[in-house]
Nucleic acid binder design. Structure first.
Length: 204
DNA sequence: TGGGAGATACGCT
DNA sequence: GCGTATCTCCCAT
């Protein structure tokens, strides 16, 4: 109902990265919703961004999804073990995306706890609750997002993003350098990481 | 309670 | 070989 429409994703990547904060990322599995509030994002700018997979327009089987129309998913494997979920932005052919780095668990808490720790939510200690989805690999595990979702249309019914129905208190957006891109020369210092001030669920 | 070191494990280039 | 990370283990500006 309050699902984000295609137009939301066609804006410039930095704008989309900021506007995604506070929204709800939803994965529907067998009619059940698993969701979390987006509290941390990073913009990846494609052609001119040495930190992006698509730097210089590099198009391979792996990066193909980044070239799609805004509002598709780009899911890739990192370190051979973890998946990272990105929201593709801009028009078709413009390979830019927003990496979702952290979520505050919202719905389907038992499903998340099961996927992450193989135990029910109520059995988790405080540290485990906080660590459910406070990193790009963790949130994919918590929401059962893997590479089978690569290229998925976020305007569909399986994986999508909604306005947060329960309008929480207004929040401030903080900006910093991106994490883990020290190799990216001048791009390593681009202020393209955005997160909600005082959130307990931001990574690191 | 929290930070740092080391191990991990595999598709992509 | 390397990588947009995480887990475990260990110890204590």
């Amino acid at each position: 109902m309050s699902k984000l429409q295609r137009i939301f994703y066609l804006d410039d990547t930095e704008t989309v990265a900021k506007r995604l904060l506070g929204k709800l990322l939803v994965h529907e599995i067998d009619g059940k919703r698993i969701s979390g509030i987006i509290v941390e994002t990073e913009a990846y700018l494609g052609l001119t961004d040495k930190a992006a997979h698509s730097y210089g327009g590099r198009k391979t089987q792996r990066t193909e999804a980044m070239f799609r129309l805004g509002g598709h998913a780009y899911v890739y494997l990192i370190y051979g073990m973890y998946n990272c979920f990105n929201v593709v932005t801009e028009c078709e052919g413009v390979p830019e995306a927003v990496l979702i780095r952290a979520l505050e668990p919202y719905e389907g808490l038992d499903a998340m706890a099961l996927a992450r720790y193989n135990m029910p939510y109520q059995a988790l200690n405080k540290s485990q609750v906080r660590n459910l989805a406070n990193g790009p690999g963790k949130l994919c595990r918590a929401l059962s997002i893997d590479r089978s979702m690569n290229g998925e249309d976020l305007c569909g019914n399986r994986l999508y993003i909604e306005e947060n129905p329960k309008i929480s208190e207004p929040f401030n957006i903080l900006t910093s350098k991106r994490i883990g891109v020290d190799y990216a020369e001048e791009a390593r210092d681009f202020p393209l990481r955005f997160y909600i001030e005082n959130s307990n669920y931001v990574s690191k």
